[in-house]
Nucleic acid binder design. Structure first.
Lengths: 313, 313
DNA sequence: TTTTTTAATAGATTTTGACTATTATTGTGA
DNA sequence: TCACAATAATAGTCAAAATCTATTAAAAAA
């Protein structure tokens, strides 16, 4: 049994296809097939059932795959130990970011980070919180940036900053006269929401203390971008809520439509999340330090009330 | 990096000697040396400091060795998973037993076990509790039989039976007239003890609620076998305490000198102990079942009071 | 210093891992 | 149902590797 064989098994288990698994492992299909067979011979069991297509994993196979994941992950950590000892910060690092954070946060830290840690090859992927969690758990992401608390087993959360909700209230809106918004005043039926799947949407719904199921509302206009929501609000379709960082880029003449909340300001908690096994922890720490350092200057709110990003149904 | 390389590193780390490590790994010294070097080259660090003899392990090396232990242990468990799936109970199994249990318990279960599980190659080693713990922790023993509770981190305890203490009181002794012994009556100064290192000795001392440090007693006669203690008692050197199973083989005419304790009878708890990682758990379970089944018939005491086998200093 | 112990190096041999080319099998769509 | 596409297994070859024996180098012990 070799680590390579276990890696091949993992690739096949993941793609359910020897040819594709071989490609992803950068070897030819026969090479991978033979190594998997060799392991199966050595253990004298079948890991994969090839009698049907797509191939399936046998019962023992499932257990072996689970254990192989352990072993391969633990083996990768050897490299990590050495890097840490050398003080080396480098290599590929795949970071997932939720869409509502991506455009505002990424430009703030990206340049600083790649200058400070030139040997890290940072690969950024925009993904929903759900994908983020899945990919962190199965090792396809080294870390993610998402709204928290999520409280997922095996995932650690390290808060980066607290970002208040801001109201964008057009002049014709009933709340327009108010200087500051109060949670009590909100009515989810006249608030423009992001599309389903965005955790900021769920945050807003939680903030309004409304039932998550809005199917039976009189009208529904939902978009994937805050820009659209602001435009729709300008058209008199209702008000909307924005994360603080997104309000910084709004045109000066529309600025007056922005209204803060009364304290304690409802806010979302944005955290760096990563697998509790702490692979590549030095890079994760470096990333956290860079982002924290930058954000500390940009957002310094106290007296916030964290709104859960999780849909209640 | 291969599992083999990691195993070689572990062998060197354990023996602090490449030649010996190679022997234990059943390869030649250059083979092992080269593989270790190859790993060091790949990681671009030194695991071992060969500038002095005996060789020492570098700081990074320590961490790598620790991680390598993980990996190798996890890798071995793959074989385990397969065996479990096949319902196969076999292979080498190294069991350590404390000296005061060995001669009485081993004959009771050994034959039954090797007949029931002919594919298991049971290797029995007589060792003190301290060695048992050490060897279970570093993987040289698959399990041990010892007096408990020990409450050691990473070690699981599965009680097998409770074995009462019995008094062996010669006729000239002050306690000879009594039918049943009471803990209160005991005086550690006239009780013949096993040598230092035996946990039964510590149990007796705890039972007498005496300080563990007995250096300043007027006389000390200590032996490694209960036979000697009984002979000494017969010579009028004092009384002694025996585990119940050891009293079964005493000559009929000396039987009358044996005295039980009043209930709750002080007893030692004998357990199967093993690493919590549960390697070879199927064999461990099989062993536990065989021993429990046999002992259930031989020792059926209720109302016992467990005496700690641990010295208090 | 000489001897012994122990690790590294050199060179030969075997084993293994990977490749290309091809065959066998399953699944799908005409 | 048959042919074609997709996919895995097999065969044969080659290069890389792991291992071996023999020897050298270096450190520790006598």
């Amino acid at each position: 049994m070799t680590i390579t064989q276990l890696q091949y098994v993992l690739a096949v288990a993941e793609h359910r296809n020897f040819t594709l698994a071989a490609e992803k492992s950068f070897v030819t299909q026969p090479t991978l097939s033979m190594q998997v067979q060799k392991l199966e011979d050595e253990l004298d069991i079948l890991i994969f059932d090839r009698s049907k297509k797509p191939i399936s994993i046998t019962d023992v196979g499932q257990k072996i795959v689970a254990q192989a994941k352990n072993i391969v992950a633990e083996a990768e950590r050897i490299k990590d130990i050495v890097d840490q000892d050398k003080g080396f910060i480098g290599g590929d690092y795949v970071l997932g970011i939720i869409p509502t954070v991506m455009p505002t946060l990424l430009p703030m830290f990206l340049n600083t980070f790649i200058i400070k840690y030139p040997k890290v090859n940072l690969i950024i992927k925009e993904q929903s919180t759900q994908s983020l969690i899945k990919n962190i758990l199965d090792g396809h992401l080294d870390a993610g940036i998402a709204a928290t608390p999520l409280e997922i087993e095996f995932i650690k959360e390290r808060p980066l900053y607290y970002e208040p909700f801001m109201g964008y209230v057009p002049n014709n809106h009933r709340l327009a006269p108010k200087e500051e918004l109060d949670t009590e005043d909100l009515d989810v039926s006249d608030i423009l929401l992001l599309q389903d799947g965005h955790c900021f949407r769920d945050g807003v719904i939680n903030l309004c203390q409304a039932p998550a199921n809005l199917r039976d509302e009189k009208f529904q206009i939902e978009s994937g971008s805050f820009e659209t929501l602001v435009s729709l609000a300008d058209e008199g379709m209702g008000m909307t809520l924005l994360p603080y960082l997104n309000t910084l880029e709004i045109d000066t003449h529309k600025r007056e439509l922005l209204k803060p909340f009364v304290k304690p300001t409802p806010a979302r908690e944005i955290s760096l999340i990563y697998h509790k096994s702490e692979l590549k922890i030095q890079i994760t720490e470096a990333l956290k330090e860079v982002i924290s350092g930058i954000v500390r200057g940009a957002i310094a709110f106290q007296d916030v009330k964290i709104i859960s990003p999780i849909s209640k149904n």
